[in-house]
Each structure stands twice: as C-alpha cells, then as structure tokens.
Design a protein around this nucleic acid. Structure first.
Length: 584
RNA sequence: GCGGGUGUAGCUCAGUUGGAUAGAGUGACUGGCUACGAACCAGUAGGUCGGGGGUUCGAAUCCCUUCACCCGUACCA
C-alpha cells in the first residue's frame, strides 16, 4: 500500500509547515496563519520534483511578498533525513523541492516488497461494488460496441479491486420482454419460409434479419420437420422457439466473452425477476409510496415528480427544473405486461436491497443516457438513494470504419461485425488494449483495416516490447556475466543519476496514484496511458544507459531498476488482461 | 425545444485540486545499430486550446454566452 508520490507530497507539506512554525516562533513571520498550499509535480524538471505554492497562497494572510515569504521558509527548512536533497525559490515564489537518493531507493524497495500487488490502494475500503457490463440482448451475436463495453467493464473491475473494493461482475440477460418476442417471431417467420418457400411468408419488418436467426430457424425446422407448424398455436411455437434460441445463444455469448478473457461472477436472468413476482412487488411498492397512477389502462410512474425532486436536491433552481421537458414512464402496459423499465427498477432494487451492494456501476452505451436519471430517480423513490449509489458510466459508441468510411451497425439489419469475427482477425491482447485506449466519454473509431495490421501500429506492442526487452536483457546478463538481480536493500540508488534514470524511477512511483485515479474516475484507460509512458521511459533509459561492462555498483543498480520496471509493466498488463511476453 | 457527449498540432488523443515555455502517438522531413532486442531512440516542423465575455496574482481547466458535430427525448430494450 505504499504510495511514494503521496509520501513525498506529505513530506513537503510537513517540512514546509515545520519551517513556518520555526519562523513564526523566531518572529520572522506572523504566527497563527492558516495557509492552504497546493503541492504539485512541475512539468519541467528544472523546476524540481515537487513545488509548493505556500508562499503565494500565504501572501494575503502573512501580509508579505511571496518571494520574501519563500526565502524565510527556505531559511528555516530542515531537510536532513528527509526525501529531499535541495530546495529552491523560483518564479513568483514557488518552493521547488528536489528528491534525493533515499526516496529513489524506497521506490525500488516498495515495488520489490509488494510485487504483483504493488499499486494497491484503499479507496474502496472493502465495500461491495457490482460492475454490470455488456448485458447484450441474447437475440444475436455481440458486436463491436459490446467488445468495447466488455473491456471497459472488466478492466474497471480489476482496477476497482486493486483499489480496495470487493468487486462482483455481472451480466444481465434480457431473456424476457419485447425483444425476445421479436426474436421468437423472427425464428417463426424463417421456419414458415422454410415450410412454404421464402416468398410465400412475410418476414416482420422489425424482426431480426441476421444470418444467425436463419441458422437457428434451420436447426429448429430440421428438429421439428414432422410436426411444424401442425396444430400447435403460434404462441406456443413462439415460447418454444425463444427457449430454443436462448439455449444456444447464451452459451455462445459466454464462450465469446471467455475467449476475450472475460468471466462473470453471475449471469442474472431478467426472467427470474418476473417469475418470482419481484417486478410486480416492486411496482406495488412504488404504488404504495404514491409514485404511480393509472391512465389509458396503463400504470404510470410519476417520473416527472421524482426527477424534479432529484434535481432540486442536486442544487438546481425551481426555474431551471421547470424549463425541463420531463415525461412520465409506463410501468405496466394496458395489455398487462411490465415494461423493461419496471423490470430494470426491480433488478436494481434487487442489487441494493436483496444483495446489499454499497455501490453499483453500470456500463451503458451513450444512446441509453436518457434512461440514467429516471432510473436513479425511481430508486430514490424506493428510498434506495439511486442518485448516489448507482453510477452509470456512459460509453460513447464505436464508429466502425472501413476504407475510412463509417459502416452502419445494427443488429436488426444483420450488418454488425461480431465479436468472434473480430477475434479471428486480431489477438485478444491487441483488441483489449485497443478498446481500452480511450476514455469512455470519447467516441472510438475502429478502423478495420488498421486493426487487422499486426505491426507496431498498435501501442500494445510498444509496451509488450519493453517487457520482452527487459526479460531478454536480464537473461543475457545472467548467462554471460553471471549477474543476478540484486535485492533493493543492497542497491545504492545514489549511483542512478542520469535524467533518464531519475525519470524512470519517478514513473514507477506514479503507478499507485494512477490506479487510484483510474478507480476514482471509473476510467481504466488511464492504465494504458501510464503503461505507454512507462515503456517510453524505459526505452529512453535503455538507449542512454548501458548495463554490460559497467562497474558493479552501477550495473547492479541499473539491473535492479530494469527488473523493477519489468515487474510494474507485468503488473499493469495483467490488470488490462493483456499478456506480458518474455519474447516476441 | 429540452437533455447528454465532444470540440486542443495535418490525423488520433492526453492534460490531475486552476500554476511556470500547452504534451504524446501518428503522418512529413533529418539522423542513430561490427556495442545488452532498431517492434527502439534522438532531432526538425506543426497551436488565436471552436468564438466572445467574466472571475484572479495566474484559465485548456471555473462561471456566463455563442457556434459546430454526434446521440437521446417510445405502452422498444
């Protein structure tokens, strides 16, 4: 749980504060002032490693010029035994601290000691979080958007677990409702076409046009060649066909995701909520609380009021709220069936109330964003505080490009590029890295022609190459020079003085901070950027500093440094579900 | 209309609680292996951070306003 960046920042704050107290006691600065200084890492290393804004931030309270305050602080600083070797005043009054060997040595020691768990944090404090992702309709193969969502959810789950959350991964199977009905009707229509000839039976306009449905129908038709359609009613065929299709599609989805490196803790069936009466019970509960009304034979949720309440609680003014174009939602249709929305409310009630999750994170396509606030508000109405405990990560859609032109994706027209087709073209490593390479809020262009190329275009190779290079380097030094990677305690970090070496060690120290931010912001793409930067720092070090033939203290320290980088690269790639090859 | 997302180098994107001269990859151009893996590195060029106003010591970042593109606004899921 060591975070050397935080340790250094804390120490800057403590040293500065102590210097101020000393100066105040000596009468060189007014006593009793509360100065809220920020401590940051300057972009330009000539400004030191950490900069405190104490002098500028305290100018008003201390009634002195920032530079004069800075000078007094410096005069009273005691760096002996600290992580820092030097402090300078610069610009408008920044206090620039420069790190010394003690800190660098501790970085190498921390990675050695924590190994595969290096970077762990306590942001989650052991609380239960569910990440629900992909949850694609089981009516057909998964497409590129699901591929992105899968990587995002799985990687986020890994990152959260590393930051101290107790993580549960779930796939919500929409095996009930209208889409399934459409699905069954589509299979039925294809079967009828097989029986009567394609032109003699109409295919429903809003049906699933894909080849996979034709294949299912073919299989079903062969199996029932002697009794289809027979005397059995359409409705009964629908039920049987839906079951037939789902029994084949769901295992296929599991297999595809498995190939992709994704395993869930649970596949939760929407139908179970209907069968157990939990949907009906949830709607009854909302009615009891006075949030529903009947109109045109349907039962409606007063979403308008719930949303207004939610927005006012979030600080919007009455005027702003009145301007919004809010609408109510149907929970139970006039035909007696519950809507998807009703089931979704019940499902989330189940997550919080039955299964006691502290936090629920759903990965949704951005086209569902209109649903976010209403679901949260409905949960608020049940007293479950959905506004704070349900987090929806909206993922912008994947634009599929071919020859630089967009390809329209739609499951109904059957033109989607399926996940399993994608994995026939590119490696799991490349796919997982590619889809996690951008924040969820950014649209992602997926160029088929580019992705298929297995050359260094893909940044995953840059990172993997660094790892392979280090493995090879260590093996070679062991074989030819009998040099083994030393323990951190026996390394003199003071001999590592090249800018490339210092930059590399600082990057290593940055890892726990990056993981924490990735977890805090639900943005696992940070890990990609970090690893790319770390690999770059290593490649620069490798070009600037030799190991072979150097005197033993230097060789030993550099070998340890390289091995430490190897460890962190493997650690990060593992979080991404990407392999860390020793050779490539 | 209303709501959400996005506007930063030719292209794809970073930019942390507001900090010092706005970064990286890629493309273009120029260099670097008889030395530990050249799937690598170094250098050059490329910017009114969509526009305008405001807040302050200081704004790509916060507030207001405006423009452009994408998405949503179902008794679909």
């Amino acid at each position: 749980m060591t975070n050397m960046i935080q340790s250094a920042k804390d120490q800057v704050a403590a040293l500065t504060e102590a210097a101020y107290e000393r100066a105040a006691a000596a009468g060189s600065l007014p006593a009793g002032a509360e100065v809220r200084a920020t401590i940051e890492i300057p972009k330009d290393t000539s400004h030191g490693d950490y900069a405190s804004s104490f002098a500028m931030a305290g100018a008003k309270a201390l009634r002195m010029a920032p530079r004069a305050i800075a000078q007094t602080i410096v005069d009273n600083l005691e760096l002996e035994g600290s992580y820092f070797s030097r402090v300078e005043i610069a610009g408008p009054g920044f206090l620039n601290f420069t790190l010394g060997p003690k800190w660098y040595g501790d970085v190498l020691g921390a990675v050695e000691q924590e190994g595969a768990t290096y970077g762990s944090g306590s942001g989650g404090a052991g609380k239960k979080v569910m990440v629900e992702f992909v949850s694609a309709n089981p009516t057909g193969p998964m497409h590129m958007g699901n591929a992105r969502g899968g990587v995002l959810g799985d990687t986020l789950a890994n990152v959260l677990a590393r930051d101290g959350w107790n993580v549960w991964k779930e796939f919500y199977v929409n095996d009930a409702g209208n889409q399934i009905n459409k699905f069954a009707r589509s299979i039925y229509a294809r079967c009828m076409q097989l029986a009567l000839g394609e032109d003699n039976y109409p295919f429903p306009e809003d049906g699933y046009h894909g080849e996979d449905v034709k294949e299912l129908a073919q299989m079903f038709y062969v199996k029932h060649a002697y009794d289809f359609p027979g005397e059995t009613s359409e409705e009964d065929w629908f039920a049987e066909m839906a079951r037939f299709g789902l029994e084949r599609n769901i295992p296929k989805m599991k297999a595809d995701l498995n190939k992709y490196g994704i395993q869930y803790d649970q596949w939760f069936l929407e139908s179970s909520l209907h069968d157990s009466g939990f949907v009906a019970d949830t709607v009854r509960l909302l009615t009891e609380k006075g949030w529903t009304y009947e109109k045109d034979g349907a039962l409606w949720l007063n979403t308008t009021e719930l949303l207004k309440k939610k927005y006012m609680a979030e600080g919007k003014s009455q005027e702003q709220v009145d301007k919004l174009d809010l609408k109510d939602d149907v929970l139970r249709r006039a035909n007696g069936f519950y809507t998807y929305f009703a089931a979704d409310i019940a499902y989330h009630r189940n997550k919080f109330e039955e299964r006691k999750f502290d936090l629920v994170i759903n990965i949704w396509g951005a086209d569902h964003h209109g649903h976010v606030a209403r679901l949260q508000a409905a949960l608020d109405g049940l007293g479950l505080d959905g506004s704070h405990r349900l987090v929806i990560v909206l993922m912008q859609l994947v634009n599929l490009l071919q020859d630089g032109k967009p390809v329209r994706m739609s499951k109904r027209t059957g033109k989607a590029i399926a996940l399993h087709d994608l994995l026939d073209e590119i490696s799991v490593d490349a796919a997982r890295y590619y889809f996690n390479n951008r924040a969820a809020t950014s649209p992602l262009d997926f160029d088929l022609d580019l992705a298929v190329r297995q050359d260094s275009e893909n940044p995953v190779y840059y990172v993997q190459y660094a790892h392979a290079r280090i493995c090879s380097l260590i093996a070679r030094l062991a074989e030819e020079d009998g040099a083994a990677v030393p323990a951190a305690g026996s390394v003199d970090a003071g001999v590592l003085t090249a800018p490339e070496e210092l930059a590399l060690m600082k990057s290593l120290a940055q890892y726990p901070e990056e993981l924490h931010l990735a977890a805090r912001d639900y943005d696992p793409s940070r890990v990609n950027r970090y690893l790319t930067a770390l690999a770059g720092d290593f490649h620069r070090f490798y070009n600037a500093c030799r190991l072979k033939g150097e005197e033993s203290a230097v060789l030993s320290a550099r070998l340890k440094l390289a091995d430490t980088v190897r460890s962190v690269l493997a650690n990060g790639l593992n979080l991404l579900g990407v392999t860390a090859p020793e050779k490539m």
